[in-house]
């Protein structure tokens, strides 16, 4: 079983959480929580296990960002989600030297959230014009408090 192998391989890294996921409900076979600094090591393990990077994105919360990495495998059905909590204003290490495909994903996350990746070879905006001065997917928490739920429901 691939998920067992991944679990075994991730063991020595001392991650926060490595647990099987509820596939029927969330679509994950393995849920992993890691620190951003551990991401290159995790990515290396996933690469050695033959997985590919399905997607990389971020979530913006009031206190922190969460980087979400999805890994899947071509031959075997095993989707692994890795979450890394990143405090606001901090940089995360890049994994684009391990997965070249992550290059664009990290640029997109930088573009939309303003998260910088250390060691990224070419961190430019990708979707918005280069001269744009905002990061659109950052939540406006103050504004949201004003809006009532019923208003959005209409």
């Amino acid at each position: 079983m691939l998920s067992e192998n991944i679990k075994k391989a991730l063991g020595p890294l001392g991650l926060e959480k490595v647990a099987p996921g509820d596939y029927a409900k969330t679509g994950y076979h393995l849920e992993v929580a890691a620190a951003p600094n551990q991401m290159p090591a995790v990515a290396q393990v996933m690469r050695d296990q033959g997985c590919f990077l399905e997607s990389l994105t971020a979530l913006h919360f009031r206190e922190h960002f969460t980087l979400v990495y999805h890994f899947a495998h071509y031959e075997e059905l095993c989707r692994t989600v890795v979450k890394a909590v990143l405090p606001l204003g901090q940089q995360a290490p890049t994994i684009s030297h391990i997965y070249p495909g992550a290059n664009w994903y990290e640029r997109e996350v930088y573009d939309l959230f303003g998260i910088r990746f250390t060691g990224h070879p070419d961190l430019r905006r990708i979707l918005l014009p280069f001269e744009a001065d905002f990061h659109p997917l950052l939540k406006q928490f103050e504004e949201e408090a004003e809006k009532s739920e019923t208003k959005a429901d209409a």
């Binding site: 033959g50 997985c51 590919f52 071509y74 997965y99």
Partner: peptide
Amino acid sequence: CRLYGLTGPMARGSGI
């Protein structure tokens, strides 16, 4: 294909 996360006919064309 694997490193760039290709899917669909792009990956299948390479035999995956």
